[in-house]
Design a protein around this nucleic acid. Structure first.
Lengths: 226, 226
DNA sequence: TCAAAAGTGTTAATAGTACACCCATGA
DNA sequence: TCATGGGTGTACTATTAACACTTTTGA
């Protein structure tokens, strides 16, 4: 009987934790929650949840993100599994971390408030429970690598954005300033970053041209480097 | 009572699977086993095992590798968690994949034979069970990226190696031929790749100089690019 | 009229790529 | 003596990095 092969092995709670990146005030931010229940009530943590019987681990991460933000079809990537025996002092829980990139204009304010979640500057994080800071650091590094070679950064911006916004985003991701002319030269080479007719006047009197990312065009070209 | 927070959630079998790379006959090979038990008896698979109560997921991967090869202190890196509901048709199992780089001169032949394991050229793999081919492809890509920016390739070679061996290794990793002089120029710039007094005469009458990788020196410099 | 952000090219330095011959040795 | 793999340097090309001024406009 085939079950015998499995049955002598232990089972574990499996959780997912979401590192939710947003771009606010020229900086990368994370959406964190102040836990309202044990263990570690009152401390800060990533949004998480347990994998259920009928869902894949990836789907659990999507569900957890949806529960907090109301958002679907969000760019998400797995960071990895975190399986230290004592990582959660309450019970043995193996957690799979995912990072998500969201546009801070889009999420559901009421849901976020209900969960007691708040944005925190990624360079001024409060103390996090368990191994969440390790997850964050790995996610940040992974995202940085990915953002330099694939156009995932646009998920953090409105559909239309100025080149200054885009540059500030990449400066936040890389943690270093970039040369404006070199940056714009590279953007100009990417034909799928298209100029619109619209301008944005919120940050200057002159107004800045708004651009947009053409996903279909990118899929034909598939060249990206910032 | 804090257990209530966990108790209404399901538990899962958690497995680890090892993508074991070796460098044989100028090609990358994987150590695969022909399963001697259900499910999928007679089919080829990665070496795997279940995470136990008292061990971390990382430790489970190390244990599984040790069980098959007799090797410890091997370079291993996590590939990720694979959590599709139906990935194992026998039972719901969430698996965390790891890749390992071993020197094919070192492993324990008897253990490998006992497990009915064999080397297979990575470009001519037999059909693998479940989602193992996905794990292999992800591991290969990850390893390729890593090998280009960190000196992990040396784990696949004997402690002393010729530059021709090293070049053939990287050609196998990248899947493309490299220019001999450019390759050697780059190696020469890495001061922690040290020439020894010994030569290897197995592949030429003239004999080729043997080199070695000085780990401590690398840790001071931390620059690598091949 | 002036402050504040938008926009725009050229040059120098560096890194990467292409390429062909002599050397040492054992069979 | 010759077949085989080991070992070496230079010129060209492409990429990246450094750098400063003019434009527009609302207050």
């Amino acid at each position: 009987m085939k079950k015998n092969y499995y049955i002598r092995n232990p089972k574990f709670y499996v959780a997912v934790d979401c590192i939710i990146f947003g771009f606010k005030d020229k900086r990368l931010n994370l959406l964190l929650l102040k836990r309202m229940f044990e263990p570690s009530k009152g401390k800060w943590s990533l949004m998480g949840g347990f994998v259920q019987k009928d869902e894949s681990v990836d789907d659990a991460a999507k569900r957890v993100l949806l529960e907090l933000t109301g958002l679907e079809d969000v760019y998400m990537e797995q960071v990895g599994a975190f399986g230290d025996v004592e990582r959660d002092p309450g019970e043995r829980v193996i957690s799979v971390a995912y990072y998500a990139l969201i546009n801070v204009d889009d999420y559901d304010r009421q849901l976020v408030e209900k969960h007691n979640a708040h944005w925190a500057d990624i360079d001024e994080l409060p103390e996090l429970i368990f191994d969440h800071i390790t997850m964050v650091n790995m996610a940040r590094e992974l995202m940085k690598q990915k953002a330099g070679s694939q156009p995932i950064g646009f998920s953090l911006l409105p559909k239309q954005f100025t080149l200054t916004q885009l540059q500030m985003l990449y400066e936040a991701i890389y943690g270093e300033t970039l040369d404006k002319r070199n940056f714009r030269k590279r953007v100009a080479e990417m034909d799928y970053i298209e100029m619109t007719d619209a301008t944005d006047k919120t940050s200057s009197k002159r107004g800045a041209r708004l651009f947009t990312m053409n996903e279909e065009k990118y899929l034909q070209i598939r060249k990206f480097r910032i």
